[in-house]
Write a protein that binds this DNA or RNA. Sequence first.
DNA 1: CAGTATCCTTCATGATACTG
DNA 2: CAGTATCATGAAGGATACTG
Lengths: 131, 131
Amino acid sequence: MCESLREDIKEKLESGYYHCAKEFTLSVISGKYKVVILWHLGIEGPYRFNGLQKLFDGVSHKTLSNQLKELVEDGIISRKVYPEMPPKVEYSMTELGYSLLPIIEMMYEWGTNRIQQLQEEGILKTSFEEK
Amino acid sequence: MCESLREDIKEKLESGYYHCAKEFTLSVISGKYKVVILWHLGIEGPYRFNGLQKLFDGVSHKTLSNQLKELVEDGIISRKVYPEMPPKVEYSMTELGYSLLPIIEMMYEWGTNRIQQLQEEGILKTSFEEK
DNA sequence: CAGTATCCTTCATGATACTG
DNA sequence: CAGTATCATGAAGGATACTG
């Protein structure tokens, strides 16, 4: 059946049967917003929930919440709650998270180069601006 | 709505609106078997359809076919048909594909290290063997 | 503010059967 | 051999409403 890649790989790891470390890495960063979350936390520092939400146009609470929860579970980011009213919650990179950053930076470079290449070939007409 | 990440990003690129090059890279390698396909093609050389299928226990024709088609579309691998009977089709990395390999290698390293770390922490009891 | 709960849609993948 | 076609399913993500 069509299992969640992330769950599937976790189970395989825990049961001692596994075959592919790069799939494991992919399962940690796969998710519509994860690499972008990690990029911002890694480059710019801690963010609050609402701050992250503003980065993505149209992300639902639930989805963002889920992505963050999974990243926390995987030890990539940490969640710090300040005992205030109204509540304040801060997300930041862990050391493990920072060790992932070079991969995301390479993905950024590769993507940028490829997009530029496509523009030069005339496949993409309009100019590209990183936001 | 929940659009395909890959299609969604393609459309955004083509319409001139885009915001994130690393998402583009992710959209190229996301897919249950893609990184593993690229790893094998990149390290071991060309593969035939059936050969690739044997690498994955339980992948369906349709899924493998789709993943390959998308990788070809994205210019990452190339498909060469030999005019024989029975047909022979060979898949191999393009130059663009090879430029992606360092990222996959880093994913492999990160995954391996992380799995080892988890084992040392006693979270994973059994030993891990790369296949 | 920072979520959780519920319901819903669509996409990725699987199973199976057929074909040049 | 190397696929395509058809059908089915589960998981990711979205919309909306509610809450400590």
